[in-house]
């Protein structure tokens, strides 16, 4: 199960809408071993594509250095799908490389850049196996 505060959900959805129709991507870091996402880190999609995302390699190194310095791990790795459902694609599964992370997908296919209903789902992806998990949204600060 992913337990996450409302404001972090709002941050991810806002990022996905802002970058639509390209895919948006980023991380929510949290203290090692806590399993709690706390620090929202939107990343640039270096691919600037509606069908692919990739963190810029220099940004990626800086991100991991920052997390190391803060004793954090990437609790959530999120990205958006802009024309398909919020479910990991074959590419997502093949490239997933953080077995301890929650992979959050947001779909903007219904409303694009606009406000409105959205799809947001969370998955574990380990050794090519996808397991969906419940998302428990708690009030900010809880």
């Amino acid at each position: 199960m992913l337990r996450i505060s409302r404001n972090l959900i709002d941050d991810m959805v806002a990022h996905a809408r802002a970058d639509h129709p390209d895919e948006a991507c980023g991380v929510i870091a949290g203290p090692i071993d806590s399993g709690i996402p706390t620090r929202f880190v939107p990343m640039l999609n270096a691919a600037r594509s509606p069908t692919f995302y990739e963190f810029d390699s220099t940004d990626l190194l800086r991100l991991y250095r920052d997390m190391d310095d803060r004793d954090e791990v990437p609790v959530v790795i999120y990205h958006s799908h802009t024309a398909t459902e919020a479910y990991p694609s074959r590419t997502d599964i093949a490239l997933a490389s953080e077995p301890d992370a929650h992979y959050v997908l947001i779909s903007t296919r219904e409303t694009g850049s606009q406000e409105g209903p959205f799809e947001l789902r969370s998955f574990r992806i380990v050794d090519g196996e996808v397991a969906e998990e419940e998302v428990l949204v708690v009030a900010t600060g809880d």
Partner: peptide
């Protein structure tokens, strides 16, 4: 990033530090 250096031919000196990171990417 060694892609901006000489890739696998990049010269390594004593006390250099090397970091391996898988790309964070998908479709």
């Amino acid at each position: 990033d060694v892609r901006f250096l000489a890739g696998l031919d990049t010269a390594i000196a004593d006390k250099d530090s090397i970091t391996i990171l898988p790309a964070v990417a998908g479709g």
